[in-house]
């Protein structure tokens, strides 16, 4: 007859293994989490509140092997903004939910032509306008609701694309004139627990 001690050992072993496996899988460590207003650098709060009046702001922290950052997500005048800061509150970039139709027509044509060469079939699922530049110029652009001179404007596109008959999600970074900067395959999350 198998004793209770034997069962206890098996259960203890399984629990120990469950909590130890995270330590083995940390080659790619990235974590994003909600943070409270008081944990946000004052400089970041000052920047956001000086541009977006009376807007509900959601703050997120992000930890990765390259460092920590803080992100503000908010909706203002019908647009969705995502503003990234470094740990000290220095602005890194601004992302605005947009559409490919906002790109100038020659840029759109060039981008569509490049995408057609890269993918046998594709469907754009999300487009974000990317603004990068000095703090005062980004602030001026946000207040004017248009990228002023000195802002590097790029488009970040998430698309479902087929290559060699295999469909995957990709992140495409494009210059404002439609020149593709990079195409990266997005590693999809493990969703086995929703399938079985």
């Amino acid at each position: 007859m198998i004793s209770m001690e034997f069962y206890n050992r098996i259960i203890f072993g399984l629990i120990a293994w469950f909590f130890c496996t995270p330590c083995l899988g940390q080659q790619k460590y990235e974590r994003e989490f909600s943070i409270k207003h008081k944990a946000v650098p004052a400089k970041a709060i000052d920047f956001v509140s000086s541009v977006f009046k009376k807007s509900k702001i959601h703050w997120y922290g992000e930890e990765s092997l390259t460092g920590k950052s803080v992100e503000a997500k908010l909706k203002y005048s019908g647009k969705r903004y995502s503003i990234e800061f470094d740990e000290s509150g220095e602005i890194q970039d601004v992302e605005i939910l947009s559409s490919i139709g906002k790109m100038n027509s020659s840029g759109q044509a060039k981008l569509k032509d490049s995408l057609s060469k890269s993918f046998s079939r594709y469907k754009i699922v999300k487009t974000q306008l990317h603004w990068k530049g000095p703090e005062h110029i980004l602030k001026e652009s946000l207040l004017a609701d248009i990228a002023v001179k000195g802002v590097l404007v790029r488009y970040e596109i998430i698309l479902k694309g087929s290559r060699r008959k295999v469909e995957r999600y990709y992140e495409v970074l494009s210059e404002n004139d439609g020149t593709i900067v990079s195409i990266k395959e997005i590693v999809q999350r493990n969703t086995d627990n929703l399938i079985y």
């Binding site: 974590r31 989490f33 909600s34």
Partner: peptide, 15 residues
């Protein structure tokens, strides 16, 4: 079915 993180916007390790 559906799932959602209890913190942040995506389900990260140790969450």
């Amino acid at each position: 079915g559906g799932e959602t993180p209890l913190s942040g916007q995506q389900i990260d390790p140790k969450e």
